[in-house]
Amino acid sequence: MQRILVNQTSIAQTRTENVESAPLEAGQVRLGVESYALTSNNITYAAAGFDIGYWHFFPSGTEGWGIVPVWGTAKVIESRSDQLEVGTRLYGFYPMAEELVITPAFAPGGFIDAAEHRAKLPLIYNQYTPTRSGNDDDDHLRAILQPLLATSFLIFDWLQDNAFFGADQIVIGSASSKTGLGLCKYLAEPADRAYQIVGLTSEKNRTFVEGLGACDSVLTYDQIDDIAQIPSVYVDMSGNTEVKMALHDHLGDQLKHSSAVGLSHWDHFAPAQKLSGPKPEFFFAPSQVAKRRAEWGPGEIEKQITAAWKRIAADASNWMDVKVYNGVAASEGPYHALVTGQADPKVSVVIRP
């Protein structure tokens, strides 16, 4: 079985290795991974692997090296469980590898991995949803966009839940990321919105973000002084400390909330910096899901997420090209492009092991 290992303290280092597949124990099934997406989301998983626990999902057994989780589709290829038959296809959280062994247990909408090492990890990452066989393009689109746009929608829902913190302006850092562009699009949907949407991005990605048509203005990172000094919220997808410091200094008391979501600029992240204005707070999507489940009952937030990501994905062909690579080892090139910030925001990568 082939897999990709990532150096846990220097996440730009990767290696491909072959390991023996372990025999199944009673109650387990073996999933053969059919396809998975690689996005900036996966860089956040690696950069926050210790802080949030992403390294714990798929232990590598190799000191100092971890397996970065990805979203994708797999098929049961061997079963010692009476809950899942060979041939069943499941969408969910997988390792960058050819296969995964889980201990399935029934759950609303599908199954969870009831393996002991995953028991205390967030439920949203332990769920596996049955999906019909058929169109590869549907699998690819789901793997690329569903996790990212679900996060975008949950941020939008959370902002609504907090009355946008009284802001007249929402500033999105790394607006070219799919989570960023998704948030811009959700923010632009309400016809009666009382806030402006400002997308921050690099000079090379500015035209791409402008072409989305979701932002009222698009500025580059060296134009922070051009941001209006009015009540604002900052949603940071990049984790770039220099940008965050500059924006906090510029907006000062007019910054009503600062939210940290991603670490796509992980190499520019420096924790424990003293900042002007409010202290940044980390947005953890599973917490908003748990809150809405408690308030609305099981299944309702999931329905809204599904409707929302499909709504934004409907015109994805206008702003996204999918590039498919074959073989687990092919993950290393696209992963390095993402981790070094060289990836084209218009191109989305799918790996077919």
Rank of each mutant, 00 (worst) to 15 (best):
G173N: 10
A270K: 12
P280K: 01
L219V: 09
R80I: 10
L247M: 12
F269G: 03
I112Q: 07
S259W: 00
G166Y: 04
T129M: 12
L148N: 12
K178P: 02
N42I: 04
I77N: 11
V29G: 10
Y234G: 01
V33K: 09
K256H: 00
A194W: 02
V328K: 00
T73A: 12
L141F: 02
L149K: 07
I230L: 08
W55I: 05
T62Q: 15
E203R: 14
M96N: 11
Q83M: 13
P334T: 05
P190S: 07
P23S: 14
R206I: 06
V209I: 05
Y325W: 10
G61M: 12
T340P: 00
D51Q: 15
A188H: 11
L247A: 02
I172C: 00
W266E: 02
V328F: 09
S152F: 03
P190I: 07
Q146L: 14
G333S: 11
H336Y: 08
P345V: 03
W71H: 09
R292H: 15
W319P: 10
N318S: 15
R132G: 14
F164N: 04
T39P: 05
E295T: 11
Q288E: 14
I102E: 04
E85Y: 11
V322H: 08
A194L: 13
A115V: 10
S259F: 02
D82I: 11
T62C: 11
E300C: 04
A119P: 05
I230P: 01
E189K: 13
I77T: 15
A329W: 03
H336K: 14
L38M: 11
F93S: 11
I305C: 06
T44N: 02
T241I: 01
Q273V: 06
V76N: 06
E20H: 08
I67P: 01
F153D: 03
P278Y: 07
Q8R: 14
L5I: 09
L181C: 08
G262C: 04
Q169V: 10
G341A: 05
K204A: 13
Q169D: 07
I197A: 02
R206V: 09
I11P: 04
T340V: 09
D315R: 10
G199F: 00
K291F: 09
I312V: 15
Q8D: 12
V261H: 01
P122F: 06
L187K: 01
M237C: 11
D138T: 14
T207V: 13
T129Y: 13
G53C: 08
D168P: 07
R193V: 09
H268V: 04
V198K: 02
A307I: 05
A294S: 13
A290C: 08
A337R: 15
V347A: 04
F282D: 02
F57H: 03
K323E: 14
Q8H: 12
T340H: 15
V68W: 00
M320C: 10
P231C: 01
L149R: 03
G277D: 02
K185Y: 01
G299M: 11
V233N: 00
D226N: 12
K120R: 15
F58N: 06
I170C: 01
D315S: 14
V86Y: 10
L149P: 06
A47D: 03
G53K: 06
G182S: 06
F111G: 07
G297L: 09
D216T: 03
G211L: 06
L148C: 13
F153R: 07
A163D: 14
Q8W: 11
L200N: 02
S35R: 11
